[in-house]
Amino acid sequence: MTEPRFKDLPPRIAKLPTDERGYPVPYFVEWIDGKPDFRVMSSKNLARAVNYRRCWICGEQLGRFLCFAIGPMCGVNRISAEPPSHYDCARFAVSACPFLSKPLAKRNDRNLPNGKTVAGIMIERNPGVTLLWVTKSYHVMNEPDGVLFRIGEPERVQFFREGRLATRAEVDHSIATGIDNLDRLAQREGAKAVNELEKCKQRFTALLDQLLPAQAAAFLKGRRENA
């Protein structure tokens, strides 16, 4: 087992095996020929996470609060392709995962083996901002190609970019460059879907207006303390 490349790991993350680079291997990762492939989701562990209420990142038991690490578009429609995690595990992921912490990073689909990715229609882009959505509930939605998760009402919401709290401008840019994807999907489904999406947009905008001023204050405080 390779020595971890990160210091001061959250206790649950520190228990995970590491790959040859020293990265912790999350619970959701599929092992192929004795090596982890971070691009492929373990269907067995997905079932275990849902059925036994396990963290999607560390695999340990979840508590009362559930954290979804999602893009802003998933915040608009409140649907995730992945089950929840502990907040501490998700917080580590937004700092350590190359795709989540580097806005220009792209998914590597080269020589992708046959395996389970995610259900539903995935928007093929790096949103540049990751949303940590803490809730007490979610509902499983069975789809022809797998399962999706309808996220419950938020108890806490934070936006991150490059491992730090995101600014309102960065959040707005991520939304502006991604919302057309949801618009096209809704238009394809018809007028009812378009109307429902508009309601989702309004609800999400109200949430941003309520929560992001506090995040902006925390962001500025952190910059002053680190100056």
Rank of each mutant, 00 (worst) to 15 (best):
A227C: 12
N142S: 08
L62H: 03
E162A: 12
E170C: 09
K7I: 09
K102M: 07
T177C: 12
Y23K: 04
E3M: 11
E162N: 12
F160R: 05
P10M: 06
V134L: 11
R91G: 02
R161S: 11
L208K: 09
R91I: 09
I121C: 02
R54N: 08
N45E: 04
C200M: 10
L220G: 04
A81E: 15
T205D: 00
K221H: 10
A206F: 01
K15V: 03
R21N: 08
F149R: 13
N195F: 01
Y27H: 14
R184S: 13
C58H: 00
Q210N: 09
W31T: 14
D37H: 14
E162R: 15
L100K: 15
L9K: 04
D172K: 15
W56H: 04
G152V: 04
A49H: 02
T205Y: 00
W56D: 12
L207F: 01
G152Q: 05
V25G: 01
I32K: 13
N195M: 08
N142P: 09
R188C: 15
V94A: 06
K199C: 12
R78D: 00
F99M: 10
I13S: 03
A69T: 12
S95M: 13
L131F: 02
E153F: 03
G75V: 09
S80T: 05
F219S: 03
R39F: 09
N126E: 02
L148W: 06
Q158H: 15
V76C: 06
R223N: 11
K35G: 04
G222M: 04
D88S: 14
P84I: 04
F6K: 05
D145E: 07
K192E: 03
Y27E: 05
F159Q: 01
A69L: 08
D183M: 14
P17M: 01
A169P: 13
I121K: 01
V157M: 10
W133K: 05
M1P: 09
V194Q: 08
P26F: 00
D209S: 09
K136E: 11
F204S: 15
T18D: 00
S174M: 06
R188V: 15
G34F: 10
A96V: 10
G63I: 08
N114R: 14
L132E: 00
T167Y: 07
V25W: 00
I123W: 01
V157K: 11
R53Q: 10
P127F: 09
G190E: 00
K136T: 09
F149L: 10
